[in-house]
Design a protein around this nucleic acid. Structure first.
Length: 273
DNA sequence: CCCCAGGTCAATT
DNA sequence: AATTGACATGGG
């Protein structure tokens, strides 16, 4: 499959912190697993080339190809800080990640750093997922709910998060939290439902809603974005949501991701000086 | 050894 | 209602 788009920077999309299972290869291409399918993806100019056993429709959904990013960005660039962020990293796309994987991934992300988040998720897949043979390599799917339900997960060394992962699996399996049903609910209702899971608070819930459900109206507030919003707009935490709704309308989540990644890139520049 | 990491919970004011 | 420390693990 080949996707042709001027609004799509593959490397920024995979490395902006929204997903954890795409591995950059020496030649700049990426290999990863989504659902039960492995894929090898490469960007050549304005084209994204995907080699995978999954259907074109599957990848169109994952990359959310029907979304009009041009129109959203045109709206967001009217705000000056967003314009700067979009100029720097505006070709990020928000992926539509599998719901359960997204939920567990962001539970694991709490009070943790990105390399270790990736390591724990990788270990979870290797130990409890299905083996996938692809391009001569061995990969693993993210485990289905029932593969980890009630299991001892010590081997993945997720620390205090293990009890959170297991509670999520239990509530999802019993449909006490019906992940499919959340798609048609408002962000506020869906957030409260996710928060009934032990270890899921506002930040994790909002990330799941943004990166698993394309609910662009949420605005996940991590330590970084709190610092950024304070620096750019002199906002304290409690005022961020109201401000985001007013300035960014229904697209706060995308605005958040642009601001977040832009600031992280800038931080990298500082560190390298 | 200390500190911190895309937070959350529970106890304490 | 707001603040504070604990929580597992690993890297700097």
């Amino acid at each position: 499959m080949i996707i042709s788009s001027k609004d799509f920077d593959l490397s920024a999309t995979f490395e902006c912190g929204q997903c954890f299972r795409w591995e950059r290869q020496a030649n700049g291409s990426y290999i990863g697993v989504v659902g039960g399918y492995a894929a090898h993806v490469r960007q050549i100019g304005d084209e994204i080339h995907i080699n995978s056993n999954a259907s074109d429709e599957f990848w169109a959904e994952y990359f959310d190809l029907s979304r009009d990013y041009g129109g959203i960005k045109k709206y967001l660039t009217e705000e000056k800080n967003l314009k700067k962020a979009i100029d720097n990293c505006g070709n990020i796309r928000i992926l539509k990640q599998p719901h359960f994987e997204c939920l567990i991934s962001y539970i694991i992300s709490q009070n943790n750093n990105i390399p270790r988040i990736k390591k724990i998720i990788g270990s979870l897949c290797e130990n409890f997922g299905e083996e996938i043979l692809f391009e001569g390599g061995r990969y693993y799917s993210f485990p289905e709910v029932n593969k980890i339900l009630g299991r001892n997960l010590d081997v993945i060394k997720s620390g205090f998060r293990q009890k959170y992962i297991l509670d999520a699996a239990q509530k999802v399996a019993t449909k006490q939290v019906d992940l499919d049903a959340l798609a048609s609910k408002s962000s506020d209702v869906a957030r409260e439902e996710l928060k009934s899971i032990y270890g899921v608070g506002d930040k994790v819930a909002d990330c799941v809603l943004l990166f698993g459900y394309q609910k662009f109206d949420v605005f996940p507030k991590d330590v970084w974005i709190k610092r950024i919003m304070s620096a750019l707009y002199s906002l304290c935490e409690k005022d961020i949501d109201a401000f985001a709704r007013e300035k960014f309308s229904r697209y706060g989540g995308l605005a958040q991701q642009y601001l977040f990644f832009d600031a992280k890139m800038t931080e990298n520049v500082k560190i390298n000086q």
